[in-house]
Structure formats: C-alpha cells, structure tokens
Design a binder for these strands. Structure first.
Lengths: 221, 221
DNA sequence: GTCTATAGCTGGATAGAC
DNA sequence: GTCTATCCAGCTATAGAC
C-alpha cells in the first residue's frame, strides 16, 4: 500500500474486474481471477484472505475510480437536458468499458451472498450520491421540483442503467428500443421544464390537485 | 408429457427455479437443483442432458405460467393509471413470489453463457409482448401517443423491473425510494393524459417543435 | 512476497444395477 | 425411470520451499 509497487494487490483487483466481465459472477474463482491478473492463484488468499474479499475490494476501487472520472462532468451540468446528454454518454462509455456489466454481476451475486451485498450497495451509492446532487441542482426552480424526489430518482436511474445493461446482454436491439423510447419520453420532461410562467402555474395547479388525489395527506415517508 | 405424472421432469423444473431463487445463478448445480426437487442428481442429465438445458426449460415454463396468470388482468386495463396500478401490484406479487429474482439471475448468467441467453431473451419477450399490447391500447387517443413508443416502452418497463429487483436485494429502502419517485413522476403522465382539448393542442404544438429540434428529420427508426 | 504442491471438497457427467 | 457408484475436473485454502 506504500511504495513503488503498482503491483500484485492492484493486479489482482484489476484481474477480478476482468474475470467478472469475462466469465460473470458464476464464473469467477481464485483461479480465473489469478489467470486474468497473470499471477499465482495462491496470492488471492495471501493478499485478500478470501475470494469474496477480493471481489469486494475490487468493486469498491473500480467504482470509486469511475465515479471520480465523472465528477467534474457532473458538476458542470446546468440543466435537465444537459443531464440527459451526459447520462447518454456515460451509459455508452461505461457499457463499452464493461463497468456496468461488473456492477450488474456483483448485484446478481449479492442477492444470495451476504458478503457481497454491502459492497454492491456501497458501489451503487457512489453513483446515486453524484446523480442526486446534480438532480437537486438542476431541478431547483423547475416546475418539476414539486414532483421530483432527487434521492429516489437518482436510485431509479441507477437501477434503470443496471436493468438496461442486463437487457442489452441478451437482446441488444430490444434494449436500444427501450432507451430510445425513454429518451423520447424525456422530451416531455424537457417541455415542462421550460414552460412559460402562465402555463407553468396552470400545470402546478393541476399537479397539486392530482397529487392530493393520489397521495393522501400525511401519506408515505 | 402425457399422463398421470406430475412428476420428475416437472419436479426438476420447479427445483431449478427454487435453486436459482435460493442460491443464485452462481450457486445452481445439478446437485443443488436435485436437492430442491427432492430427486436424484443423475436425473437432471437423464431428463435434460445438461444443467443448462434444464435451466432454459424451467425459465421458459415458469415465465409462461406467470404471464398467463396475468393475461386477463392486462386485458382489462383501460387507462394509463389502471396500468400503473396493475404494474405496482404485479411488481409486488412477483417480487414476493421470487419470480423476478429468477429472471434477474437468469439474465445475469446469460451475459456470459450463450446457452442461457436465448432463454432469458425469450422470457423477457413474453412479458414485453403483453405490456406492449396494453400500452398500445391505452395510449391510443392520448396526447402522449405521439411521444410514446409502445414496443420500446414495454422493454424499458421490463428492464426497470429487473434493475429494481436487483437493487432491492442489496438496499430495500433505496429501492423503495426509487419506486416512490417514479410513481410520483407518473403523476405528470397522468395529468398530461387527461388534459382538456385546448391545453392538449398547445402541448402537442410544443412537443412537435421540440421533437423536430431533437430528432433530425429521417432520424432513428 | 511469491511459488509449488497438495489436502479436501464440490462440480458435471456417465456406467450399470435394479 | 430411477438409483448407486464412480471418474475426473475444478475449486478453496493451506503448508512449506524459496
């Protein structure tokens, strides 16, 4: 953890990510990981104790790195449509780099492996915290603010990315259709977002009435 | 497939579903499946040749059964808000029954196992075909019709369910927040859906202008 | 820190008795 | 059709040489 070694520990973590990408969570083993890392299988246990702990460390490190890469981009976003543009770019880049795939596989494994669950939750959290910040900023002053819950939406976006990633893996064309349909719907958000003052007030009136109808006073959380 | 046997073949398929639910795709083996089914391990290979083929058959059968259970419910839906209500109920029931979990695990496995991929895609297709039909029906005559692509949206909904399911497995509260945020946003769709004729025409004008700006003429399929 | 070797276990798959 | 027994590959984890 100190000096000149860009070495074994890191190579193992990179190897873990690569192995998950290639073989899926069902195919990772100390041997496949070590193979991807180009090191001896026994070193997994020397450095991390168990395979699970290596996966946990690798997921955490890889995700933190990716999120940090995008921090400046997130900070520069000033409107909903800029956020949609960044989301599209981020989705495409992360998909190609295989990082979404790794996250999805970790999540799948975490469903039945309690030792992976906190790591997967933490990785998702790194993403959702960033998204939430941006949403909070760009929604301020929008007529959608009354209607949009930034923490919840950030989590929905993250879940959506994961679901789309898994879909893409079995039906690329279908997933593309899904994404295109969502972007088309986003036009609606966009239009509402820069309504004139009169239309805006009219919409807010309608929303208030409708919301009261759906969420009883003193309702949810 | 013919007579009085509610037997081994079916028990194995039920056992496969149960094993995926309990141990995840990384934990299914001929032995765990046979254990869940209460039959001998060798019977997996006698009846299905390989474990993968059993998983494929089980996924197909279980999904078809679930979709059939909902067909009448889907057919009875007459509006977007009825569809949202049914979606909420369906999500909750399938989550509790563990069928979404199985689908998610199959999808995760299918990412790196080409023999599972067609089965996972087909299972998703069973759901999206139903959803698409309903969407097509309830969107007819809505001002959203111009903006909403039923096949794409159906696929987006299915992907969203899968993503949320995986999220729930590692952070139940976060996933609940995500769902609540989406339902809150759905109010917007609802409001737009029953606009008066004047507001409707105004919105359509705005949408047309905005769409032209975003999707160049002769653009995407 | 890294390697070889190996113990001990679980996995897919088959042979052959019943 | 179903069971027992078994082969062999691959797995985690450790011991011990270097």
């Amino acid at each position: 953890m100190n000096s000149a070694s860009i070495s074994t520990r890191q190579r193992l973590m990179d190897g873990a990510v690569e192995a998950i990408r290639r073989y899926g969570i069902a195919g990772v083993s100390a041997r496949t990981v070590a193979g991807c890392a180009g090191v001896n299988q026994a070193l997994v246990f020397y450095h991390f104790g168990t395979l699970d702990e290596l996966l946990v460390a690798a997921c955490q490190a890889a995700t933190a790195e990716r999120v940090a890469d995008y921090r400046d981009r997130f900070a520069a976003v000033r409107s909903l449509s800029e956020l949609l543009d960044l989301g599209r770019e981020l989705h495409e880049q992360e998909r190609q780099a295989g990082n979404l795939a790794v996250l999805a596989q970790m999540l799948a494994g975490a469903q039945t492996d309690g030792r992976l669950a906190p790591a997967a939750a933490a990785a998702l959290r790194l993403w959702t915290d960033e998204i939430e910040l941006v949403l909070r900023r760009v929604l301020a002053g929008s007529p959608l603010a009354a209607l949009a819950d930034p923490p919840g939406l950030a989590r929905a976006v993250a879940a959506g990315f994961v679901g789309l990633e898994l879909y893409e893996g079995v039906d690329r064309a279908g997933a593309d259709d899904a994404l295109a349909a969502l972007e088309q719907l986003a036009v609606l958000v966009d239009v509402v977002d820069d309504l004139g003052p009169v239309a805006r007030r009219a919409l807010q009136g309608r929303l208030a009435r409708r919301s009261r109808g759906r969420v009883p006073p003193g309702g949810r959380s």
